[in-house]
Amino acid sequence: MTLPIHKRASTGGAPAPRRSAARTSSTVLCALGVFMLVNGLPIPRDATAGAIKGTVTLKGTAPELKKLAVTIDQYVCGKEKNPEELVLSPQGGIRSAVVWLDKPPAGASAAALAPTATMDQKECLFAPRVVVVPAGGKIDFLNSDRLLHNLHSTPSANPPFNRTQPKGRTITIPFEKPEIIRVTCDLHSWMRGWVVVAEHPYYALTDGAGEFELKGLPAGRYTLKVWQERLGTVSKEVVVGDQDPTPVTLEMPAR
């Protein structure tokens, strides 16, 4: 068996204060997202079809994020975790932000999002941290750690779930209503995952550089929305015209 303790120990930083994580985690949230399959979408034959290609960036000073101390199950989880609630590229691009059209164009045909996504739990972190799944889709929650995790979430529109998960067992959870759901683990308080249940196909997840692309858009004026777990939601008007793809930069103010 591999020993993540040792691997993790070498990446360590300053120890953080202890938390009685196990006790306080009364609610669960383990979520999963669906990978957006933006790539490979067929370019619409429609002469009016266009695309938005842009970057989500941080405006202002990046907040200082402390490493998370791990006080339990170090043999799997390591001694500390990098904070992932805001991950920036060197150029300030924000990773794992979700961009979508506030109102999808009527009659437009974007490629449908994959109905099933996977969210694993590896070394006591949700991977990926954010998944997008279409409403009516499902997420397969996995556990690669040789210990118990406990998926826990109390969404507002979808039914809550609270499942104990040993290693190697897949728990599949369906999501019917569009919303952004937080998933936690009762046993490891630092674990956060987000499931974005998409209302329509025009959703995109930013990559490591903070870039995204929305395709299959007729020319017109749109309201773009972007959400990030720490920075909240920001809107921006975009006109899709002859230029293809339409470039856009979404700035999220630091807070």
Binding site: M1, R23, Q74, R146, D186
Partner: peptide
């Protein structure tokens, strides 16, 4: 109740942790 459940889970993970140390 939920509380004893989390205690079971906690104890089980502690068992794992100790076992890992023992194995090392």
């Amino acid at each position: 109740g939920e509380e004893p459940v989390s205690l079971i889970l906690r104890e089980n993970n502690r068992f794992n942790d100790t076992l890992a140390r023992l194995e090392t």
